[in-house]
């Protein structure tokens, strides 16, 4: 009986968690009719997009045994870059390409310092977190960057003018999650990411190009943060260098709740997506229940700790 419970936790832990939170807000009569509706879930999904895309990238990094604290700053910075480009009348496609490139370059710098100069990722990205935040404020001249309309503004609207059922941002996040999950599971690159995080010494011994691999992971993740920056821009309809402060912690929390291990080698995209959803549902539900924000914060903190505790139970079973 006890082992069945543990098996259940090991296989579907995050998923069970998601169902529990949804049930929590569906049962009380005062919220039921508002909470469990298509429209409300459209809002929840839309609110999850930025954290979800960040979490896809962060899953890759954490599985490879790293961490990226500069994610929030990168998202703010790339949103400013996007706004500046639109302001200068760049088309949508060049803007998207340039913003993704900006994100990838930040990742490249992070990855190079971590891999080639052998510095701990926590320290490197703690430093770049502050540097990128500063650079964003500098380029934005310490204020929000406004522009006159762009198709990008339509990516996160729940009004659904084109009839896609969900906003484009949600579809992009779902597509990206699917592709990345397949890549991590079925490609040489993906298996090498797991190998690197599971045991770097073994990876080196077996002739994996560990330095190149790490740089690639951070650069790719940087591109994803750039994409998240575009959705941040779409949501605010302006470039704001002070947005997404501390968002990296939400992203990391989503990955951890999803069952990844901070020591590397373990983690799934699906888990991280569920982790991101759990947090979004909690936020949304608490608002509907009329709970004060401090209460939401306490609950979310608690969920992170419980998730990691369950993770330890699971690890205990393995050793």
């Amino acid at each position: 009986m006890k082992s069945t419970l543990k098996h259940l936790l090991a296989k579907g832990g995050p998923f069970i968690g998601l169902i529990l939170v949804i049930a929590l807000f569906s049962l009380p009569t005062e919220t039921r009719e508002f909470f469990l509706t298509y429209h409300n879930f459209k809002i929840i999904f839309t609110q999850t997009v930025i954290v979800a895309i960040g979490a896809i990238a962060m899953t890759m990094i954490i599985v490879s045994g790293g961490i990226d604290l500069s994610a929030g700053s990168s998202i703010a910075f790339t949103s400013v870059v996007g706004a500046l480009l639109i302001q200068r009348e760049f088309g949508t496609i060049p803007t998207v390409i340039l913003v993704l490139t900006a994100g990838a370059i930040i990742g490249l710098v992070n990855g190079t310092m971590i891999a080639a100069l052998r510095m701990p990722p926590f320290i490197v990205t703690l430093g770049t977190m502050s540097m990128i935040r500063g650079a964003g404020k500098w380029r934005a001249d310490n204020q929000t960057v406004n522009y006159e309309g762009s198709p990008i503004n339509q990516w996160m609207t729940t009004a659904d003018p084109a009839g896609y059922a969900l906003p484009p941002g949600v579809w992009v996040a779902i597509g990206l999650a699917t592709v990345t999950a397949v890549v991590l599971k079925n490609t040489v690159f993906g298996r090498h990411v797991f190998a690197l995080g599971s045991n770097e010494a073994t990876a080196r011994l077996c002739g994996l190009p560990t330095v190149r691999l790490k740089i690639m992971i951070y650069a790719l993740a940087g591109g994803f943060f750039g994409l998240a920056g575009l959705f941040q821009l779409s949501r605010l309809r302006q470039g704001d260098p002070t947005v997404a402060v501390g968002l990296e912690l939400d992203i990391i929390a989503a990955v951890i709740i999803g069952g990844a291990s901070l020591s590397g080698g373990v983690g799934t995209i699906l888990g991280s997506m569920i982790g991101a959803l759990i947090m979004a549902v909690l936020r949304n539900g608490s608002q509907q229940m009329g709970w004060p924000t401090y209460f939401q914060e306490i609950i979310i903190g608690l969920v992170i700790i419980v998730a990691v505790f369950l993770d330890r139970l699971r690890q205990g079973k393995q050793t």
Binding site: T187, V188, R191, S198, T202, A203
Partner: peptide, 24 residues
């Protein structure tokens, strides 16, 4: 790599030989 599968451990030096264009 203790938390990875037997298959992944055994073939880590030559994973690119199990498929085309980087797929395994």
């Amino acid at each position: 790599m203790l938390n990875q599968s037997i298959a992944d451990n055994l073939t880590l030096t030559k994973q690119d030989s199990f498929g085309r264009c980087g797929w395994i």
